[in-house]
Simulated scan of single mutants.
Amino acid sequence: MVDVSERLTFFAALFNVDENPEAGMWYLYGTIILLCIVVYKLGFAKKLPPLKSFIIYLFLILGCTILTFLGVFLPVAEGLVVAAVILIIYKIRLKQQKKHEEVDGVS
């Protein structure tokens, strides 16, 4: 017999999806939504009118529903964490490069 708790991803095990599925799935859903929003804002967001932004976030949240079910046994949230870290590093380096170019351009 297969032990389900051995196959859970890090976040699914952290939120005890196997022992308390209702609360654990809501926590996993919230985590995936938060991480998707962070990745979207860091990598893809453009300045949009409020209604278009609302529609984008609505579909993002609806898509996260499917990702949550996949995220119990597949590393969805973990992949989003990695993507967020990479995008944060990219944004920091881009800001440093622009700052360095401004200093060199003024001198």
Rank of each mutant, 00 (worst) to 15 (best):
G71L: 01
L67R: 02
V72C: 02
L51Y: 11
T65P: 05
L80N: 01
K52L: 14
A45C: 06
A77V: 04
V81A: 00
K47F: 02
T65D: 12
L42G: 08
P75G: 02
L67I: 08
G63Y: 06
Y57P: 03
I88L: 12
L60K: 06
K95V: 13
A84H: 03
Y40C: 01
Y40W: 13
T68F: 06
F59S: 10
Y90T: 09
I88S: 12
I92E: 08
L35P: 03
Y90F: 11
I92P: 02
C64R: 03
I92Q: 07
P49V: 12
I55M: 13
K41N: 09
L94T: 11
C36V: 01
P50D: 13
A77T: 00
A83P: 04
Q96M: 09
I56A: 13
P49Y: 12
L94K: 11
F59D: 10
A77L: 00
I89C: 06
P75E: 01
F44W: 13
V72G: 05
G43M: 02
I33Y: 05
L35N: 01
V39K: 01
V85P: 04
I56K: 09
K95E: 11
F73N: 08
I55V: 15
I66V: 15
K41Y: 05
G71I: 04
F54R: 07
Y90N: 09
I86Q: 04
I66H: 11
T68V: 08
L51H: 13
R93D: 11
A45Y: 00
L35T: 00
A45V: 00
L42F: 15
F59T: 06
L51C: 09
F59V: 09
T68E: 02
I89L: 07
F54W: 13
L94W: 07
L62A: 14
I86P: 01
I37Y: 04
I37T: 10
V85A: 10
F73C: 07
L58Y: 13
L62E: 11
I56T: 14
A84K: 00
A83K: 02
V82S: 05
L60P: 00
L70R: 13
G71W: 00
A45P: 00
